[in-house]
């Protein structure tokens, strides 16, 4: 759900900031960062089409998680992977239909793989086993037992 919301927020920011660029402009508007001189400069960018696709896929992932539909989350995952492939194929060319850059490639790829793992990974076998994992449980993360 968090990944879906983050994608919708990112896409919405992209849509607002890319309002002055062509719908499928090869170089989209910068969403995070403004300068290559800064560590956070020019991280991701969108044209309006790229922003709308990100919003749609994020909303699908959120809706799928909300309704417990693994299929919907998997479709969103496949969509993000397709977006990553688009960036890899078209970035640096005039026909870059989503207007992204290398940073978009990384974000799309990770969202695709991450959502797929979230959809395909079964719940822990034993009830309450989440709390039994000292590696991640908030309470035990602070004070783990010896050797986990």
């Amino acid at each position: 759900m968090v990944l879906g919301i983050a994608s919708v927020v990112l896409g919405t920011l992209g849509l607002v900031l890319a309002s002055g660029t062509g719908f499928t402009a090869g170089t989209g508007a910068i969403v995070i960062g403004s300068s290559d001189d800064l560590p956070w400069g020019k991280i991701v960018q969108f044209n309006p089409l790229g922003a709308l696709v990100t919003i749609a896929l994020g909303a699908l992932a959120f809706g799928g998680a909300w309704k417990g539909s693994r299929a919907a989350v998997l479709v969103a995952s496949a969509g993000f992977v397709a977006c990553a492939i688009q960036v890899a194929v078209q970035y640096g060319r005039s026909s870059n239909v989503l207007g992204g850059r290398g940073g978009n490639l990384g974000v799309f790829l990770a969202l695709g793989v991450g959502l797929a793992l979230l959809a395909l990974t079964p719940e822990p076998a034993a009830p309450g086993s989440l709390a039994a994992d000292p590696a991640i449980s908030p309470a035990t993360h602070e004070a783990p037992t010896p050797n986990g």
């Binding site: 995070i32 960062g33 290559d36 560590p39 956070w40 400069g41 020019k42 991280i43 991701v44 970035y91 640096g92 060319r93 850059r101 290398g102 940073g103 490639l105 990384g106 974000v107 993360h141």
Partner: peptide, 25 residues
Amino acid sequence: RGAVWFIRVVVALVWLQGAGWKRPP
């Protein structure tokens, strides 16, 4: 834990920014 999270996110953003200026073809 906040510091660990912050380090990870900043390192990630540095790599994403680095990927951004490697322009194919």
